[in-house]
Simulated scan of single mutants.
Amino acid sequence: MPDHVLITGGAGFIGTRLARRFVDAGHTVTVLDSLLPQVHGDDPRTTSPLLRSLDGIATVIEGTVTSTDDLRAAIDGAQIVVHLAAETGTGQSMYEIDRYVEANVGGTAKLLDILTNESHSVKRLVIASSRSIYGEGAYRTVDGRTVYPAHRVDADMAARDFDVHERGEGPITMIPTDEQAKLHPSSVYGITKQMQESLVMTVAPTIGVESVALRYQNVYGPGQSLKNPYTGILSIFSTLIRQGKAINIFEDGLESRDFVYIDDVVESTFLASTLPSAGGHTINVGSGVATTVNEVVAALFAAFGSEVPTTITGNYRLGDIRHNVADLARLREVLEYEPQTDFRTGVGRFVEWVLSEPIEESGYERSLKEMAERSLLK
């Protein structure tokens, strides 16, 4: 049976594509979004292609999850809620702490308060969690044990030792992190995502609402903001390449992430929202492949067919992790889904889209200055 779906933060990169996926499957969609200028520009109705893509697709409510009245209006009639709304960006979270906590934790608390204390028709709540809650994730010792190392320290990185160490152990090797891993986020953003997930997965079952937590890895693809300097190195580097500006690579360029293509994220989220078997599960959503920053730059140069100067600076940001890659066994088992787009193919599609967009100032240099002034960028 068709459902009425509410997507909070639904005018963003993931939400707009997800809205179309639900509508294509016969569902009705309402979007609640604050239309932040950092993402949508100063006049979203004319400057945001993401918002315009919802025309004829979804009912859009301009509002915020920090307002009980806005949430109450958006929830009305919904059977499924996909809670995407959040402030994002590891670096910015370290100095805009109140804003991140208010939006991410406070907004989730308000949503759950309504579902707990007021009449509604919601039967499933999907929370967009994050790989950031793992901190450094899982590593294997030389004798085969799994450990979860502490965060890297400033003194080591200042000496250009960027590797992860575990006290009392020899060399350790990064392995895919599964959902049973220790949770120890290294940034304010990661802390707020852990709290969002914990709130939803604790409260929802007590009020008869099925809950699903999706731990997204690094999502990329067409539609990703080219204006927001606080998230998405593919967007940041692409803008620099088009401007002919040099790329400064932090650390030694060997730090890695699990980059997952937008279509795989959308399909995983749709399945998590609709499959009866998904209820109650926490699931990694990624590609299962670690890609270094150096490999990202090489892939972008190949896709653009042009290069700009690059410098491996040795700079580093406090709060950043070294590596993370997702174990996808539960994604395959519960959602019966296998990611479809490899990184090279995804980057090609992303760059093709980027080349169709105007070249805009991203504010990247300003964001670095803000972090340096607060001694978060070394």
Rank of each mutant, 00 (worst) to 15 (best):
M1F: 12
I7K: 00
T8D: 00
R21H: 09
D24N: 09
D24Y: 10
A25D: 09
G26C: 08
V29S: 01
T30W: 03
D33L: 07
V39H: 00
H40V: 05
D43E: 15
R45H: 12
S48P: 04
L50Y: 03
L51C: 02
R52K: 14
L54Y: 00
D55Y: 00
D55A: 10
G56E: 00
G56L: 00
I57Y: 00
I61E: 02
V65N: 01
L71D: 05
A73N: 06
I75C: 07
Q79C: 10
V81T: 01
T90S: 07
Q92M: 08
S93N: 15
Y95M: 04
D98P: 02
Y100N: 11
Y100I: 04
V101S: 00
E102V: 07
T108I: 08
T116V: 09
E118M: 03
H120G: 01
H120K: 05
H120T: 06
S121Q: 14
R124M: 05
L125D: 02
A128P: 03
S130H: 06
S132V: 05
Y134F: 14
R140A: 14
T141E: 13
T146P: 07
Y148C: 13
P149Y: 10
P149F: 12
A150E: 11
H151Y: 14
V153T: 15
D154Q: 08
A158P: 06
F162G: 06
D163N: 15
E166M: 15
R167E: 15
I172N: 02
D178F: 09
K182E: 13
G190C: 11
G190Q: 09
K193M: 04
Q194C: 12
V200C: 13
M201V: 11
T202L: 06
T202Q: 13
I207V: 08
L214G: 01
Q217K: 09
G223M: 10
N228I: 07
P229F: 08
T231Q: 12
G232F: 04
L234R: 03
F237L: 09
F250W: 15
F250Y: 15
E251F: 13
F259K: 11
D264R: 01
L271V: 10
A272V: 07
T274E: 03
G279I: 09
G280L: 06
H281T: 05
H281G: 06
T282Q: 14
V285G: 00
V289E: 10
T291M: 04
T292C: 09
L300C: 04
E307A: 14
P309A: 14
T311Q: 13
T311N: 14
T311H: 13
T313C: 11
T313R: 02
L318A: 08
D320P: 01
R322D: 08
N324H: 12
A329F: 04
V334M: 05
V347C: 04
R349W: 00
S362T: 11
Y364L: 13
E365H: 10
L368M: 15
E370N: 04
L376W: 02
